[in-house]
């Protein structure tokens, strides 16, 4: 027995918008079935999906060293880390799906180049020191970006980020620990570490995106509580954190203009080469084609597996 469907007075859009605005203003969370402005939904889907893509593609640069990791302990650590990244991608796709997106569809968009992933993963990993530097610098920058996102106005995204951040701290620590060990090792190992730092430092600064005055979408995202700090604020926080870590490690950051600004209490970097950034992000990064080809192969070459399991479920009434 079900009750007849009775008409209720429809809530008007203005009231819904007011309620949404009040929720954001009170720093409460928006949840999946709440009304939300279309722009908010679209911006979130793009952000969360591209964050997820970054995690998944981000498995590859380090994954390239899984089979050759130079000790069984390092192999375990790296495998657990790369596996975590698959997990983080899944948490994030899961959050995107609460907004009405579909994971297979998002994956197609990644493979077709319609959605992007972080430019940082378009650089190759040339030596094992890159594994350490990715943990230290790339994951360090990711943590700077992600910690504020734990307070994102969208509930499922914020919860996914809390889980990711808890797990990510191990990623940075294992990287830094590997570098410390290598710096205590042979002269060759020390040279490998310095070389990797030389190659990854500038790209890691670019992970925070263009300067605030050239970042037109930031204001709306900040107002919506999807973004909590500006690109420059986060980049500054990252630089201030990383410089003393570099000193403790005994490596030189490849920036002759890097200076301590006594007045502001901040480290100041030299100018960032945004032309390179533009090139890499628009798909001319050295590894772009390789990264996407791998995702395409994982999807297409194994489609028969996915289909088989579906067929079995249908046969057996699952």
């Amino acid at each position: 027995m079900s009750a007849p469907t009775l008409e209720r007075p429809a809530p008007d859009e203005t009231a819904l918008q007011r309620q949404f605005d009040a929720t954001i203003a009170a720093d409460h969370r928006i949840e999946p079935r709440d009304w939300m402005p279309e722009g908010y939904r679209r911006t979130l889907i793009r952000q969360v999906a591209q964050h997820a893509h970054s995690e998944i593609v981000g498995m590859q640069p380090e994954g390239d060293w899984l089979l050759a990791a130079p000790s069984l302990r390092r192999k375990s650590v790296l495998l657990a880390k790369v596996q975590d990244e698959a997990g983080h991608g899944l948490y994030l796709y899961s959050a995107a799906e609460t907004l009405g997106a579909d994971r297979a569809d998002l994956t197609d968009k990644l493979i077709e180049g319609k959605q992007k992933y972080s430019s940082i993963f378009n650089y190759p990993t040339l030596t094992y020191a890159d594994v350490g530097v990715i943990g230290w610098l790339v994951d360090g920058a990711a943590i700077c970006n992600q910690v504020p996102l734990c307070r994102s106005s969208y509930g499922p995204y914020a919860r996914a980020m809390i889980r990711v951040c808890k797990e990510e701290s191990f990623h940075q620590r294992q990287g830094y620990e590997l570098l410390m060990t290598m710096m205590r090792g042979t002269p060759e190992q020390r040279a490998m570490v310095q070389d990797a730092v030389d190659r990854w430092w500038w790209p890691s600064l670019m992970m925070f995106g263009p300067p605030d005055d050239a970042s037109p979408n930031s204001a709306q995202s900040m107002a919506w509580g999807i973004k909590r700090h500006t690109n420059d604020e986060l980049r500054q926080r990252y630089v201030d954190m990383s410089v003393p870590q570099a000193q403790a490690l005994g490596v030189t950051l490849p920036d002759p203009d890097l200076t301590w600004d006594e007045a502001s209490g901040h480290w100041r970097t030299g100018p960032i080469d945004w032309d390179e950034f533009t090139r890499v992000i628009s798909g001319s990064g050295p590894m772009n084609a390789v990264r996407i080809a791998r995702r395409r192969a994982a999807r297409d070459d194994n489609a028969w597996v996915t289909e088989a399991a579906t067929a079995y479920a249908e046969k057996h009434g699952a």
Binding site: Q60, G63, L66, K75, V82, A86, G89, L90, A297, V305
Partner: peptide
Amino acid sequence: TQWMTNAPELEEEVAIG
């Protein structure tokens, strides 16, 4: 481990890991 980043679905990637 040779399956990592090549597995049929992400869920299976985690399982194999």
